[in-house]
Amino acid sequence: MSLIVESIAKRFGRFPALKGVSFAAPKGCFLALLGPSGSGKTTLLRILGGLEFAELGHVTFDGEDWLAKPARERRAGFVFQHYALFRHMTVARNVAFGLEVRGRKTRPPRAEIARRVEELLALVQLEGFGKRYPSQLSGGQRQRVALARALAIEPRMLLLDEPFGALDARVRKDLRLWLRELHNRTGITTIFVTHDQEEALELADLVAVMNEGRIEQIGTPGHIRNAPATPFVAEFLGQSAPAPAVIPLRPNRTNLHVP
């Protein structure tokens, strides 16, 4: 187990966002944080990325005290729900950003940066888009630029906040498959937040179902689907699951009262 999260707690004012979250996940896994809005999943992701601070708890990653490192030293590639691309920079400059801000000693030479940018744009299938501005791209293209930008720093961990939330259904399906393939190729520990159970179950190796600042259950998609640990998990999965083909009729148990 390489990522160990121990009793993380966080409140915003008087609202408890996380009430002691603990779990462990192997390095290189693809983990989904699944839950309704307000369940604390994004807060947990932001804590892992160093954008928010936990009041209590520990996180160990690869044997290191993860929360002791400031955000800029974690090399946690963060992909925001609304992409947060630098709007005044071209696509190429966006992708190069993480390399250009490095200290003089560790910064690759200019030609090397340009080569890396080309490589990453090819990886996200956006060759030839380097000179465009984010405002000239579609939602799906922006999403992939955001991914390329996060991958440029050779992240130790990839954190995605509702990565497909702002896209239309068809683009979402394509991008989902593509992301899974990308993960298979790179093997970077990836954690993504979603409220779509279908997305989580289809895509992830491990799914953590969250509710009201706690993890209700964590396990493989098959495990979660077949053996929901709590009534909440059963209900949350059942609610948005595709309707069964045949609706069983149970006439003996009808509770109809005719006054």
Partner: peptide, 25 residues
């Protein structure tokens, strides 16, 4: 704040974030 957060997560210092992201915007 998202663009600044993105800059920090990509390894930019506070001053670098201000100069490269906030100021141009």
């Amino acid at each position: 704040r998202e663009e600044e957060e993105a800059a920090v997560s990509l390894g930019a210092s506070g001053w670098s974030t201000f100069r490269r992201v906030t100021l141009p915007n």
